[in-house]
Design a protein around this nucleic acid. Sequence first.
DNA 1: AATAAATGTGTAAATTCCGTGAAAAAACAA
DNA 2: TTGTTTTTTCACGGAATTTACACATTTATT
Lengths: 222, 222
Amino acid sequence: MKILIVDDEKMIRDVIKEYCLNNNYSVDEAENGKVALNKILNNSYDLMVLDIMMPEMDGFTMLEEIPKEKRIPTIVLSARGDEYDKLAGFDLGIDDYLTKPFSPNELIARIKAIMNRCNSNLSSTYKLDSLEVNFSAHYIKIDERIINVTPKEFEILTYLIKNKGIAISREQLLSKLWGYDFFGDDRTVDTHIKMLRGNLGEYRDHIVTVRGVGYKFIENEE
Amino acid sequence: MKILIVDDEKMIRDVIKEYCLNNNYSVDEAENGKVALNKILNNSYDLMVLDIMMPEMDGFTMLEEIPKEKRIPTIVLSARGDEYDKLAGFDLGIDDYLTKPFSPNELIARIKAIMNRCNSNLSSTYKLDSLEVNFSAHYIKIDERIINVTPKEFEILTYLIKNKGIAISREQLLSKLWGYDFFGDDRTVDTHIKMLRGNLGEYRDHIVTVRGVGYKFIENEE
DNA sequence: AATAAATGTGTAAATTCCGTGAAAAAACAA
DNA sequence: TTGTTTTTTCACGGAATTTACACATTTATT
């Protein structure tokens, strides 16, 4: 179990490190978002403890830049207590957060909780009437019949469903599903949405376009 | 999203209830462990806020009595701040804890965080009687019915609500929502406000013009 | 009451946004 | 390789949105 600690204050990194080592987790550190991003791209960690307020590259920006296949469970440290909105609207990949000052024991406890949760959270399917999306087995069924979609379409649908009810911008889709280094056209997303809708048949209207923003998946009328 | 609040002090239950309702969670209460256990066995909740120190049956005992299939995400409230309680609690599958006295806002934030990681179903919503503005889903409802507004109208309303009670100048709106490089007419704002008011129907008067300054959103008469 | 300044409102032109289809480019399989 | 599927680009056209502006109305001041 390897944990990446991202914080600009050495003191804090040291404290967290100490506690992690005592609990048999191995640790790597980064003092800002840039370094962290680099480490994430070139190594594999099981969990990240991330400070939001950092010089060079802040935590939010960094999270956005992580390509999807490199995303890991993340506990966010935040100095101010009133930024929850941001956390909420932004990225649902954040697993937990703590407001500074926090107790190291509490952090450890949460790390344990997340480690447990992730291990037990594997095969899952999403169901909506006769629509069935199996995330792990990677198939979509409507009325018990397999619907063929391309990988990208599947990724998009999955992402929208996991963020159902929330409007997702094209940029967010691109950076999450294509990767931070994709420099193509926004409208590519539209084309995939078009294909996806075509394939979803009677469920096509569950992908709603939010004009000026992007798309969202809805379960019912809202 | 239904939350069960378990605490022997009615005052505390009421406060938590108030905040939960404001955030679109529905609420049920129990004044001790026995009642709570009963409710859990016969209903289904998405989350529980649980006080540890209670008469009749304390929180820990109660947690142990819950059969595995009925366990739900739990936030523990504890009057004592010593670490032993905290860690012991986590071993019982507790998801988070707060020490009394706690800030209701923090509790809400943590509830959101847990809801978020369990079923990624959080929504930041502003409610005023039958007016409902969902920031993340990007919709406005009045009397349960969707109100169609343009993106700019939505942005403006959102901005005013987030700064409710404060007069916002046209310049401020322009620079925040249009961008610092907008060189158009001040009065464009007025046109959008006009449209927005039209769409807000009975709530049109909550957007007050502050003569000589700009506009503000108010909840009640002032 | 008269005046000036600020705001409300209707209209129409200008602009932006999105769905779509077609075709080029890239990835993949045989 | 060759052929097939997937991904990406791009441009058209309709529709929705944004903006500007003229005129009406309100408000504050004298």
